[in-house]
Each structure stands twice: as structure tokens, then as C-alpha cells.
Design a protein around this nucleic acid. Structure first.
Lengths: 150, 150
DNA sequence: TATTGTTATACTCTATAACTATA
DNA sequence: TATAGTTATAGAGTATAACAATA
């Protein structure tokens, strides 16, 4: 099932090509993101957490889920962001075990600044026509199952 | 120049949407890659180095360039891969300062295995028609400037 | 008992700076 | 003197295991 036939079908070749291209493209994207984060003296993980919180407060556990890492890691990441007053912890009203993490006004400003400084990616997207952007969005959704607002 | 107009043009909104979607898609891709690497007891960075070497031998310095990290990091990464006999160092013939890193047969096998275990991404791409794959490839090239074979 | 967040531990990745051996 | 690779160092991310507080 996972074995490819010895004769290369055009389909298989294109998938290989795309995998290679995706690998390089994500490298460019990550470099852009890391540089943007560094411009605010943040690591990529810290910026990722900040970005996730733009949607609203989240429990430590939920944040770990979003960042696909162990819950124990979140403590340190949020500690460093809290020390810079970009986020704050707040005890949950209904369940006192839970701590909700909330973006401060300054944290919101920094998150927006990082987003705005992703020039390379932004310029690449701005260079596309409206139709092309729509097409790319649909393709990403079909390949990775990610819709913009979910 | 970098200031957006106060009235939101449809173009600007679509770019925001795409940035968000790219962020999530990248998360899915990275998770897939990290899991595939872990299935061979490798970290993402080690797997990335292994994958880069599939194109052929590379000097330590060139590898650092490819992985967009400081040259001093490559020493440790290659040390660990060499300890497992997935790569080997070889002195360059023309410049004795240079060490070329070469994939061993076992390293090649492991690199291929990781590539093959990226089921999520692979399935996503296989679900596209030939035309859609071609379209995605063109869009990636225009946004990120990455061609498959360069 | 189960879950949330934290701590302790060990390993890896990362950049900076200083070192060596070549060029 | 300049460059390739290494080492030393310090900070950050990561998973595992164990813990306290709460459910």
C-alpha cells in the first residue's frame, strides 16, 4: 500500500516535487516569522503563543494543544511573556485549577507588530491577484484541512 | 508605505486571511514532519539536515546556510547523526579546512523513511488533481520564490 | 480518581565569542 | 589577514516524570 510502483507515474512525481517545494517554502516562511519575532526580541515560540492569544484568552492546557507541545513547556514560555507584561494569568471563575492567559494591551500591540513585519510573506501574497489568493486559500484548505477561521 | 488605508480593501482582508491560514497550515506540516522524524528517533533539526543531504554532500558551512542557523550549531547536529552512522565527515581534497558531510546508505534509508511517513501531507497532496498540484506549485513559487529544483 | 498547572531533570537547539588549522 | 570548523557558554525549547491543588 505504501510501496510506490517501480514505474514512476506523473502523479507520484508531482507529489514528490510538491513535497520538496513545500519544505523550502516553509523554510522561507519560518525565516520570515523568526526574523519578525526577533525584531521584538521574542523567540519564535513566544511569538507563536502571542499570536494564538490574539483570538482571545486560553487556558494553559488549551495553549499547549494549540502549540502542539507538552503542557509543562507552556509554563516557562508564559512566564517569560508575563515578565515582560505581554500577557497575564487569571484564575478561572468556574474551575480554580484552570489559569486563563490573556493578552495585555502591550501584548496585542507587539503581536500586531510582528504580524506586520512579515514583509517577505506579505509581499509574496500581495503580488497575487484576488483570484490567485482565493485559489491558494482553497488549495491550502484541501491539503492541510485548515480553514481561516476555525 | 507600510501603513494600510483605514478603509479595508477586499485585497487586504484576503491577505490577512491567507496569513492566518498559512500559519495554521505550517503548524500541520511541521507536526507531520516532527512526528515522521520522531518515528526514526530523530529531532526535526536532525531530520532537516538529513533531508538536505539527500541532494548530495555539503560542507558544514553550506549546511548551516541551508538550515539558516549559525555554523557552530551544525557541529553538534552532525556529531549526533555521525554517532548513529547516518552521515560521515570527509576532508575536502582541495581545501583541507573544509569537511564535507555525506549521507551513508543507512542515512539515505532513514531519510527516505521519514519522507515516506509524512502521511498527512502526502495524503493531502495526493487528494489534488494534477491540475491543482500544478497550480499549487506555481502559487508557492510566486509567493515564496522557491522552485522545486534549485 | 482524574485533571490542571507546576516543578525537576535531562537533552537538544540556538547565537555569541574565542580558539585551531588552514588558506 | 581571512576563512572553515570547533569549543565553551548561556539561554530557550522540549518531553518525561512526579507533585500539589482542585474537581
Amino acid at each position: 500500500m505504501t510501496e510506490a510502483p517501480r514505474t514512476k507515474a506523473p502523479v507520484a512525481v508531482d507529489t514528490d516535487r510538491l513535497m520538496e517545494q513545500l519544505s523550502m517554502s516553509w523554510g522561507v516562511y519560518l525565516g520570515d516569522f523568526t526574523l519578525a519575532a526577533a525584531s521584538e526580541n521574542l523567540t519564535a515560540s513566544q511569538a507563536k503563543a502571542l499570536n494564538a492569544l490574539r483570538r482571545g484568552p486560553a487556558a494553559m492546557r488549551a495553549l499547549a494543544e494549540t502549540m502542539t507541545c507538552d503542557a509543562s513547556n507552556i509554563t516557562g514560555i508564559i512566564d517569560r511573556l508575563e515578565k515582560r507584561e505581554l500577557v497575564r494569568r487569571e484564575a478561572d471563575a468556574s474551575d480554580r485549577r484552570v489559569k486563563n492567559v490573556i493578552l495585555t494591551a502591550e501584548g496585542e500591540r507587539v503581536a500586531d507588530a510582528i504580524r506586520a513585519r512579515m514583509h517577505s510573506t506579505q509581499n509574496g501574497l500581495d503580488g497575487l491577484s484576488a483570484e490567485d489568493r482565493e485559489a491558494l486559500s482553497l488549495l491550502l484548505e484541501r491539503v492541510f484541512g485548515c480553514r481561516p477561521t476555525c
